[in-house]
Every structure is written in C-alpha cells, then in structure tokens.
Design a protein around this nucleic acid. Structure first.
Lengths: 244, 244
DNA sequence: ACAAAAGTGTTGGAGATACACCCATGA
DNA sequence: TCATGGGTGTATCTCCAACACTTTTGT
C-alpha cells in the first residue's frame, strides 16, 4: 500500500521527514601508511579526553538550500579548515537504525534540533597530502586529527562502516589509475609513490616494473633535486604536472 | 555559521526537513539496443496520452522505517510488478532545485503530502532480460513501458540526468566484466551477446576474438539447440551457468 | 665498514589485435 | 539465387611478470 496513492497527507509529520547529512572520509598518506581524518565530537564543556567513542568522521547536516557537493565542501572546511580539496561522492547510507545506538544518543540530543529524526547520510571521500594539511580545530569540532587506518577506534554512528566502504572504493579507483596525485606532497620520491600504490592496492609491486611504468607517464616529471638528510642514498625527487 | 553550534532548534521546520526518494533506472536489452523502463505518472482521471512530460523513471519516497535497498526493491515492484531483480545503488542526487521545475509542480502538488519539501533521491540501476519481464501497470503507475535509450523523451524532474549517470556507471562496470548476465534471455546467441557488449562498451568488437574469449568462460555453455525461424543461418544457442 | 634504500635491463609467456572467407537458411 | 548473419584460424604485437646486483649516502 502506498500512502501517496490516496492523495492524503501522511500522518505523523516528524516520522516522514528526514535529515540529510554528509560524511567525509578524508585519507592521508604519511609515506608509510594510510590515515583517516577524524574529529572529536565533544559536548560543550566536556573533557575532551573523557570518551573516545565520540570520534567521528567529519560530517554534518546538509542545509536546506545547499547542493550536496557544496555541503560536503562547506562541512569539511568548517570542521577541519581544509580548503580546496576534491571530494567525491561514493555512496548513501540509510539504515533506519544507523543513528539510534545508545552511545550516540546523548550527543544527538544535545546537538541536533530533531535528535530522533532519521538521518540519511551521503558519503564522500577525499585524498590529501598530509604534510600540506595540518588541520586546525574549529570551535565546533573540538579537535581534528589524523588516525592511522590500522588502529581506528570505534567511531560514532556507523562511521566504521562508512570508512570501510570508502576504502573499498578508493581501491577500485586506484586500480583504474585515478586519484593518487592528491595523496602525495608536491615533491616525492619513486619509493614513496610505490609504497602508496602498494598500500592502496594492498599488494606488493616489483620495483623495476613499477619504475618502467612510471617513466611512461608524462605527468610524472623528474626534478633537479635530491632528497637530503636521509641515512641512505638520496633519491631523486619527482613532481606531478597536471596540465599535460 | 553553523546553526547546530548554538544548540538551539532550527527555526522553520519544514524548510529543514527532507524527503528521501529512490529512482530506479532499469535497463533492458532487446537484442539490438538498450532500453529503459519508464512509467507514465498520470494524474488520476487524466488522459494517459495527454502529456508526455510525465514520463519518469520508476521512483517514489522512502518510507520512514525502510532501509534504502529495501525501498528500492519495494518501489520497483510496486510500480512495475518486477520482482527478484538485483538493484545497485550508484549515486545520490541532491540539487535543491531538482524538483522545482514548473512541469513537475502540478504532479507534486497532487501526489505528495509536502510538495514543496526538498527531495534528495538515491539512484539505483538494474539490468533485466526484456522478454522475461513484460511489466504490468499497477494502479498507481498508470503505465510502465520500455523505451529505447536513443529516443528518450524529456522526463520528469532531473530523470534525464539520472539516466545518463546510470549509463555511465554501467559502462564502467561492464568494462570490469560484471553484470551483463542479467540483460540476456535464458537462451541467447553469441551474436546477441556481442551486440550487447558493443552497445554497453560503445565500440565495435572483432567477432573472432570475441568468440575466442567467450569459449574461455566456463559460465557460458552451449546448448543442443539452434535458432528457428530466422532468415539466415540459424545460430547455436547458449546459456549462463551461474553456479560454476 | 656497514646499514639502508636507490637505481638499473632482459627474457618469456599471456593476452590482445588484425585480418578474409565459406556456410546454412528463408524468401 | 540472393541476402543475411553464423561460423572459423593464424601471425603479430604489446603488456606484464619474474628476476639480482651495484651505487650512494650517513653513521
């Protein structure tokens, strides 16, 4: 039976209305492992260290007149001060109970105008060169910080699931030679580039074959510079040329 | 400025509430071209032939306690009687004006309890063997019918955009040797299979090479049957074995 | 001198591409 | 007999995988 078929308004307004939110999974790369950007969703006046279960991926409600992509950009920059980052939508999450867990209710009741309203969230992911971005906490997000993917704590709502889904997605995308660019600093070594691919693709690569392929890519160009201060033979530095 | 930061309820309830809907892009294959399943969203008592601008992809609102995938399945079967079809989420559409067009307002005002509410829709796509499914109209959807992808009319809301996005998506997925199975009848010829790939991949394939590859797939098995009633040499029929 | 990562070529196999003619049927 | 799509094999090329040793720096 479809309510709208009767042309009568649905009864129980609140139950029919949804909130729509955005959750951004921001991946960083420190040269060794993938990291995820988390915020501490503190309640006002609460000790920030008190409870790790309020760790969450940076997300918030979409405003009434806002496009989804715009919302994702706004929310990320508000919560983490990250600007000019390419965000890509990857999936919607709409389990009716995704926000109903006991551990999340307290926060919701204090921070959301309609804490009981069902929330459908749109997941976005993004890749960031960690060293270029040292996120500063905003007043709302009590703290933003990088966390290695391996030791993610239990996150708010269904955010662990959202991170997992985002990871699957970037694995797919990387196999197709997309992205990657965003995760590295402006100058990088071929060793770093290879480690990044190995982590994303989740397998080891042959060094010589890898370098052969890299040489064929016109967008990766060598610089007249070498690494300094490393305790081994210094590597040549490379950079990306996007306009090629 | 973030409203929730103040811990005050947002004013203007209606403007902050969203409807969430599902739109299903169902592709069919008739042996020659791709088709899309459309419904005529007639207003009650209106002549069905009166206005082509109410053609739409089968979609409706998500119910308050319904998972998104469930909603997609329910909505498709309610509107088209199609059952047991694999639906895959591919993207969310949230342009604030996506439902505001003049041509759509009349229908919304009569069929939706809150016609002015912003609607975020989650797009699903699906592939169907056309001959297995002759959709019967339900009472709500005045008529469901296949329409060749080439001559889609102007559709309701932003459905043309949604169909385009779905098409892009299945092209991607087909390059990865997924799906396809669903689009063919139980018994098919290699010619049909090749045409299907050519249409989805949007390029021509070499017949001999194509057949070489097919022979290597254990899931495509020859039958002891030939085409009948065709005006050329009858082709051998094949079928899919999913359990291999 | 040693530890640690950088850097460098060749070979063999698998898979993709290109290509042209005869066959069976219905009209 | 003709028009239509069905059906078949070979030669070449490109891409990918496997594989080991020398080099340069800091300590």
């Amino acid at each position: 039976m479809i309510l709208r078929e009767t042309h009568q308004p649905v009864t129980g307004v609140e139950s029919a209305a949804f909130d729509v939110s955005i959750d951004n999974v921001v991946f960083g790369f420190d040269g060794h492992q993938l990291q995820v950007l988390l915020i501490r969703q503190g309640l006002p006046g609460e000790d920030m260290e008190s409870d790790r279960f309020h760790m969450a991926v940076p997300g918030d409600l979409v405003l009434p007149q806002e496009e989804l992509d715009e919302a994702a950009t706004r929310i990320l920059s508000t919560l983490t001060s990250l600007e000019g980052i390419y965000l890509k939508q990857f999936r919607a999450f709409g389990d009716p109970g995704r926000v109903a867990d006991e551990k999340d209710q307290d926060w919701l009741r204090r921070m959301r105008p309609y804490p009981d309203r069902r929330v459908v969230t749109i997941g976005y992911y993004s890749l960031v060169a960690m060293e270029n971005y040292r996120p500063k906490p905003s007043s709302f997000a009590s703290r933003a910080e990088w966390c290695p993917l391996q030791d993610l704590p239990r996150l708010a709502f269904d955010h662990n699931q959202i991170v997992d889904a985002a990871l699957l997605k970037i694995r797919e995308d990387a196999a197709h030679h997309q992205l990657v660019y965003e995760l590295l600093p402006e100058k990088f070594t071929l060793g770093q580039l290879q480690r990044l691919y190995e982590i994303i693709l989740n397998r080891t690569l042959d060094k010589r074959n890898f370098r052969k392929n890299v040489k064929k890519m016109p967008c990766i160009v060598p610089l007249d510079e070498k690494q300094e201060g490393v305790l081994h033979k210094p590597a040549q530095l490379f950079t990306f040329r996007r306009s090629d």
